[in-house]
């Protein structure tokens, strides 16, 4: 258990940096909008999704209608619906199933789908701890931000780049392991093209829909994984052609 905790902590250090800082930023904004750290605790505890929480601050300071709030949340977070596809089978074997679904953020998803536990370690336990630690960082950051306000000891501008860097390293690792680079290239092209067409705040959903469409159409060409029961457990069996 101790070893698993250490492993999970080590894996989540990049997220610790990113979440603490982004959480701080969220807490600060919330405090400026007139809400104490209890509200930050509540929002980060039950919503737990970075980008929508920043929009939430706008909702709370303006007078957004209930329907607008619901529709915007569904749209902004629609990408999450794609993350679960990789874990449908894996999560349901876990006792912490509901929490795992609730806590599947961009960063936790990235860590979990690139996770390789050392031999002898309980993988499910490591997965849960990673998800749980990530949320602790986020809650901690947002509560601190709302409680401390502007009194931060040093200039941390730019530390949120840790998140971008984390995605880049995972992308490179996955690129190395994949036998076919078609999924990665498809995702890259589709998102750049959609970014140019739809703009920064709207491109993710169309991009993911197009990517799924193309990859589904290419199914026969990317090799068959008919015998592989659980995604990501056997990356070496991926795409044996091309």
């Amino acid at each position: 258990m101790k070893q698993t905790i250490r492993f999970a902590f080590y894996k989540t250090i990049p997220v610790l940096l990113g979440y603490l800082f982004l959480g701080l930023a969220f807490g600060l904004l919330l405090q400026e909008a007139g809400y104490s750290f209890w509200w930050a605790l509540l929002a980060s505890g039950i919503v737990y999704a970075g980008s929508i929480q920043f929009v939430l601050v706008d909702f709370l300071s303006g007078g957004a209608g209930v329907v607008t709030v619901a529709v915007m949340t569904l749209l902004i977070n629609s990408r999450h619906a794609f993350y679960g596809l990789s874990f449908v089978e894996k999560f349901r074997k876990m006792k912490t199933y509901p929490y795992m679904i609730f806590s599947l953020t961009d960063e936790t998803y990235s860590l979990l789908c690139s996770l390789k536990t050392p031999a002898g370690m309980e993988e499910k336990q490591a997965m849960f701890l990673i998800a749980f630690f990530d949320q602790i960082y986020w809650v901690l950051g947002s509560v601190l931000g709302a409680a401390l306000g502007q009194v931060l000891p040093f200039d941390m501008t730019g530390i949120d780049f840790a998140m971008t860097a984390l995605f880049i390293t995972i992308f490179i690792d996955q690129w190395r392991e994949a036998k076919s680079h078609i999924p990665a290239v498809t995702g890259l092209c589709s998102s750049v093209i959609c970014l140019l067409i739809f703009g920064g705040s709207n491109f993710i959903l169309p991009s993911l829909v197009i990517t799924v469409g193309i990859l589904t159409a290419l199914k026969g060409h990317l090799g068959e994984e008919t015998q592989v029961p659980v995604a990501k457990e056997t990356p070496e069996e991926k795409e044996d052609k091309i």
């Binding site: 990408r79 794609f82 993350y83 596809l85 990789s86 874990f87 449908v88 998803y109 789908c113 690139s114 992308f171 996955q174 690129w175 994949a178 076919s180 680079h181 999924p183 990665a184 498809t186 995702g187 890259l188 589709s190 993911l208 990517t211 799924v212 990859l215 990317l222 994984e225 592989v228 995604a231 990501k232 991926k238 795409e239």
Partner: peptide, 8 residues
């Protein structure tokens, strides 16, 4: 679920 992660 298997091929999406690199694309995502």
């Amino acid at each position: 679920g298997q091929i999406l992660p690199p694309a995502i």
